[in-house]
Simulated assay, not measured.
Amino acid sequence: MLDIFLRLKTLIKVSHIHIDSSVFRLHWCITSVILLTFSVIVTTRQYVGNPIDCIHTNDIPDDVFDLYCWIHSTYTIPRALSLHVGREVAHPGVITSAHDNEEERRYVTYYQWVGFTLFFQSVLFYIPRWLWKNWEAGKITALMMDLDVGVVSEVEKKQKKKLLLDYLYDNLKNHNWWAYRYFFCELLALLNVCGQMFLMDRFFNGAFLTFGLEVIAFAERDQEDRLDPMVYVFPRMTKCTFHKFGVSGEVEKHDALCILPLNIVNEKIYIFLWFWLLLLGCLSTLVVIYRLVIIVSPRMRAYLLYIRFRLIKREVVNTLVKKSKMGDWFLFYMLGQNVDSIIFKEVMHELARRLGHQSKDFTDA
């Protein structure tokens, strides 16, 4: 299994140039790789064993019976989950044929699709990043011009600073559309998290949205009274019915108990995903609210520059925010995260001076 993680590690390319926020990176970098890893694990037989093993009569070959039950699904009886194991039922959710009402059966049909669904979810989490990377088109990298390295010759630094200053001054108030597209990608990431929660709830027949809450409640109940929600959603033992023709041409019915060892892995995966997506959704909601505040409040934009780039004077920040638009502020903020702090301070001071900032104690950059 270590080999799998080492290979998937190559998918996480941590760049020293940041063109997005840390919460946004949780979506496309961390969550996408986590889902892809889970997909590989559940589809690799050597790590989880046979996905299904059925106990049945010797009249039917093992491979045939197992394959039939895997393809056509198995079932449990929900009311049998609360019956006493060992006295009333052999296993949770499994009851004798005499008490087996076909209308009460809850068919377990999802397990064939878990690996594919996890892979599809991984792709969905990467789509906002793919959109932003295409829309951003290397702007931050081009404007940096290796100014993230503080130790450069004065001649080279002066030339690159001038190019950056000329671009920022000549294109002032022209970056709103660029910034709004990034904000749209963050909103899309939030919608993706919410949509995936409902997608998995549909996938598990309405049992996923409250899955984490039920697991927490289950841990707090008394041993005698509690019904494990993980056994309900991910049963370990199910039943399967196989029909075939007998030697006289009559239809014969064969019942079997089927062990689903893969569900031991599935339940751990989805309880983790429930809490992880909940956390990711909360963080993404806060980010969207934060972006709305930034859009409507120039004062907040100035305050964020104060606390993030303390080397820049307050009056310089005030001038920059007053003379620019929200998109310019976003570009300044992204450049400040990537360019050397001293060089960035000098660039911002010089830009403010070009925009008309004057002060007795203002030092030329």
Rank of each mutant, 00 (worst) to 15 (best):
C240G: 02
E250Q: 12
T238Y: 08
A207M: 10
M200A: 07
F218Q: 08
R202T: 15
F245G: 14
K253I: 08
A219V: 08
W177K: 11
I271V: 04
L278D: 03
V193G: 05
K268P: 01
M200W: 11
I216T: 14
L191T: 11
R181S: 10
F275N: 01
C282Y: 14
W177F: 13
Q196W: 06
I269D: 01
Y270G: 03
I216C: 10
N266H: 03
F183Q: 14
E252S: 00
V233A: 12
F211H: 15
D222A: 15
A219E: 10
R226L: 06
V233D: 12
D228W: 08
L257W: 07
D255S: 07
T285K: 01
F218C: 11
R226H: 07
L213H: 09
L277F: 15
I259R: 11
L273W: 08
F211I: 09
F272D: 02
V215G: 02
I216G: 11
P229N: 04
G212R: 09
T238P: 05
E214C: 09
L260G: 00
N266W: 00
F203D: 11
Y232F: 12
C185M: 06
Y180E: 08
L188T: 07
F183H: 14
L191G: 10
K253A: 09
E224R: 11
Q223I: 05
F272T: 03
L191H: 03
L262A: 02
V247Q: 09
M197D: 07
L188Q: 06
L190D: 12
I264N: 05
W177T: 12
V251W: 00
F245W: 06
E267S: 03
G212W: 10
L280V: 00
T241W: 04
L209Q: 09
Y182C: 00
L260F: 01
T238H: 06
G212I: 08
K253L: 04
L283P: 05
D255H: 05
C194A: 15
L279F: 15
A219P: 02
V233E: 13
A217C: 06
G206W: 13
R181C: 06
R226Q: 14
L213E: 08
M197K: 10
F272C: 01
A219F: 12
E220Y: 14
L190P: 10
L278F: 13
H243T: 12
M197I: 13
Q196H: 11
V215C: 08
D222C: 14
W178C: 02
K253M: 06
H254S: 05
F198L: 15
D201E: 05
E267L: 01
T285Q: 02
A179P: 04
